[in-house]
Amino acid sequence: MTISDKQRAICQRFDAGYLPPGMEQMVGIALDTLDKLPLYATRIPPENGTCGWYIYGGDYSSDLGFYQALHAAHLEEVCPGIMPYLALPPGWCVILAPDYEDVWFDEKFSKGPREG
């Protein structure tokens, strides 16, 4: 099964639209936290070359340097577990840990900065 097939299956399972990111688009990712659990991912509307995904492990930090920009193409290398979920559209949130998955829609993340 290709990654695209897995992404379509996830979107179908949660009755969500299918909006895969362009691999040249950027994600916000807290690279220094990826060894911590659980893994959190939230997608907001894409803008300015981003695909809208923000990903971190463990505890969130509001520090300015918490997230780094990374091309979506590199996620398979640095965070392969999130790949099947990347086609979920803005507003979707994911929590992953060993033997644990929580996926839900939160309307507040589905709106752009001037819409909400």
Results as ranks from 00 to 15, higher is better:
Tyr40Gln: 15
Val94Lys: 01
Met26Trp: 06
Tyr67Asp: 03
Met83His: 05
Pro20Asp: 01
Tyr67Gln: 04
Asp102His: 10
Gly91Glu: 02
Ala87Asn: 10
Ile3Ser: 10
Pro38Gln: 08
Leu39Pro: 02
Asp102Leu: 14
Met83Asn: 09
Asn48Lys: 10
Gln7Glu: 15
Gly52Asn: 06
Tyr100Gly: 06
Thr33Cys: 09
Leu39Gln: 00
Leu75Ile: 06
Asp32Arg: 15
Ser62Ile: 06
Trp104Ala: 07
Asp99Cys: 10
Trp92Phe: 11
Ile3Gly: 08
Met26Gln: 12
Phe66Asn: 06
Ile10Asp: 02
Asp59Ser: 15
Lys36Met: 15
Ala97Lys: 04
Glu101His: 11
Tyr60Cys: 05
Asp5Val: 13
Ala16Asn: 01
Arg13Phe: 09
Pro80Cys: 13
His74Ala: 14
Gly57Ser: 13
Gly28Thr: 01
Ile82Gln: 06
Ile3His: 10
Gly17Ala: 11
Cys93Tyr: 09
Tyr56Asp: 04
Asp35Phe: 08
Val94Arg: 04
Ile82Ala: 05
Arg43Tyr: 02
Cys51Asn: 10
Tyr40Asp: 08
Leu34Cys: 09
Ile82Val: 14
Tyr56Val: 00
Asp102Met: 13
Gln12Ser: 15
Leu86His: 07
Gln7Pro: 09
Gln25Trp: 04
Phe109Thr: 02
Ala69Ile: 01
Gly91Ala: 07
Ile29Cys: 03
Val103Asn: 06
Tyr40Met: 11
Asn48Glu: 13
Ala72Tyr: 01
Gly49Gln: 05
Cys11Glu: 06
Arg114Phe: 12
Tyr60Thr: 04
Glu107Arg: 14
Gly22Lys: 13
Leu19Phe: 11
Pro21Tyr: 02
Gly28Phe: 03
Glu24Leu: 15
Val103Pro: 05
Phe109Val: 01
Ala72Glu: 01
Glu107Gln: 15
Glu107Asp: 12
Trp104His: 15
Ala16Ile: 00
Ala16Gly: 00
